[in-house]
Design a protein around this nucleic acid. Structure first.
Length: 494
RNA sequence: GGCGCAUUCGUCUAGUGGCCUAGGAUACUGCCCUCUCAAGGCGGAGACAGGGGUUCGACUCCCCUAUGCGCUACCA
């Protein structure tokens, strides 16, 4: 690749951006970065009916969030704009006009109902579907009659009746189609907007795109694009068709609305690092067995030869694994910061440091640091930290059993006794307090570790599971610990 | 129906004719560690869609079949 590589991500703003979209964006971005090229974003808003207000904004926002910055495109500009197709209408018109004049395209006045009937009939007869070319050889007089009736025509491309059209896909090799299976497709709609086929070819050429990385589903329409390039006298770009991402039920991702939108994952507290890492390994693999990759590291190692050709299934479990990894390895301060909205939502506050040895910031970080390993995503966090936020302790059945054990009372009394003599209860102090307690009771009463730890844990949190005991103690603070032990004893005796 | 793409453990994948009694990861599972849950360590179970070729030798190349998916719009 001698010339400078230029690739583009060209979403159509018709809904919530999903994992499939973003994977295509990611691969384009990685390709551009790896080969030192430019990454262009172009909004393909040519379908007036399906365009959703704000969809382009969300797409851009998702890209930004994931760290996929673009060199040219909306909000950024560049020498090949505008980057919204709806602002390039005159460009498409002039090219359509040229094809019209050269006899490589023609106006078609067929009514939608007629086309529909035609298709039904073809279906019924078991014939290949496609436009029957009724308007292909319309006389001037007939065309004028239609115009007089006020019919807005579409412009169709004149596809050769025989021969074949083939193109080279970098991954799959030569793919060819008999021209007889390609019908005279529409390039300009009656509302004046171009179809994907025209807009895409014209823009890729004008924007000097060298490599097209797009989803697999485009392979069947590739011959149309090749034919257009040829008709316009242009050189087609190189093509890499990316394997589709299927959802759990086996269908193409974009067809199911579901919970696969990037926004949904962001809301649930998945990190962009995890999503990028997961997506990168869906359809691409490194030469070794490494699995954890930062974005810049991926850019360094991403080569198109290692993109796979077979479709893959989206697997939430695996995404969760990546997310847990990042939850565990990202700085605690960042996780704490991101946990705030979830805690506020659940408890109306994001800290409860009063009466503890910590500042609000320290407290939050300590809390998050001790539970982050237990969740798949941040939205699960509140469920694990109730003990630190809620006042009354609710006991689980097994916690109750533990507290009713004959040895529990002595343990708790000894615990409170030691607690009283501590003036600052941080994690370190809690830790040594526990050690002393275990030494003492282990020796004197011959109690096992769990016979000591469980009652304390149960009285403090109402549960047998949770963060390490010293963290629990430090998070509650001295007074609340003492209070909870007292309360638990009362509630048991009553 | 037509056209196209694909087919290795449940899932993501390695594998480009001998390195494969098919490797890694995840999920599942056993043990260890441990106050619990995680994490971590060490094990286990688990796959080349089927049939024909080509070859001294096929997961790897060719053909057929099957299956899955995609496209078949004045959607992208």
């Amino acid at each position: 690749m001698v010339e400078k590589v230029r690739v583009r991500f060209a979403p159509s703003p018709t809904g919530l951006p999903h994992l499939g979209n973003v994977r295509t964006a990611l691969f384009n971005w990685l390709f551009a970065r790896h080969y030192g090229g430019a990454f262009i974003v172009r909004i393909e808003d040519t379908d007036v009916a399906r365009t959703r207000e704000g969809s382009d904004r969300m797409m851009l926002e998702d890209l930004r969030w994931l760290g996929l910055d673009w060199d040219e495109g909306p909000r950024k500009g560049g020498g090949f704009g505008p980057y919204y197709q709806s602002q390039r209408l005159s460009i498409y018109h002039s090219h359509a006009q040229r094809l019209l004049e050269e006899g490589q395209a023609y106006r078609c006045y067929c009514a939608p109902q007629r086309l529909e009937e035609m298709r039904r009939e073809q279906q019924r007869r078991g014939q290949p579907p496609g436009y029957d070319r009724r308007c292909r050889d319309l006389s001037g007089a007939e065309a004028r009659r239609c115009e007089a009736q006020g019919i807005e025509p579409v412009v169709r491309f004149t596809v050769p009746l025989d021969g074949e059209t083939s193109f080279h896909d970098l991954l799959r090799g030569e793919i060819s189609f008999a021209n007889s299976t390609v019908d005279d497709f529409v390039i300009l709609k009656s509302d004046g907007y171009p179809t994907y086929h025209l807009a895409n070819v014209v823009d890729d050429h004008l924007m000097e795109v060298t490599d097209v990385l797009r989803a697999d589903e485009w392979i069947p329409s590739a011959p149309r694009h090749i034919l257009l390039y040829k008709a316009l006298g242009w050189e087609p770009p190189r093509y890499i068709h990316l394997p589709l991402i299927l959802d759990k039920s086996g269908g193409k991702m974009s067809k199911r609305l579901g919970q696969t939108s990037i926004a949904a994952y962001r809301q649930r507290g998945y990190s962009p690092e995890a999503i990028v890492n997961y997506l990168a390994l869906l359809g691409w693999s490194p030469a070794d067995t490494q699995e954890i990759f930062r974005l810049d590291e991926l850019a360094g190692r991403f080569t198109w030869e290692r993109i796979s050709v077979s479709p893959s299934t989206f697997d939430l479990e695996r995404l969760n694994w990546f997310n847990r990894w990042y939850l565990r390895h990202l700085p605690a301060s960042r996780i704490a910061e991101e946990a705030v909205p979830y805690l506020r939502e659940a408890y109306g506050r994001d800290e409860r440091s009063q009466g503890t040895a910590y500042s609000p910031e320290e407290w939050l970080e300590l809390l998050v640091d001790n539970v982050r390993e237990e969740v798949d995503s941040l939205d699960q966090l509140p469920a694990h930290v109730g003990f630190a936020f809620v006042d009354g302790v609710a006991f689980t059945a097994e916690a109750r059993d533990v507290l009713c054990a004959p040895t529990a009372r002595a343990v708790l009394e000894a615990f409170v006794e030691r607690l009283k003599s501590v003036d600052r209860l941080g994690v370190a102090e809690a830790s040594s307090l526990i050690r002393e307690l275990r030494d003492l009771l282990g020796e004197k009463e011959h109690l096992k570790a769990r016979e000591i730890m469980f009652p304390v844990r149960a009285s403090l949190t109402g549960s047998l599971h949770g963060p390490s005991l010293e963290a629990v103690m430090a998070l509650l603070g001295k007074e609340r610990c003492i209070q909870r032990v007292r309360d638990s004893q009362c509630s048991l005796s009553s």
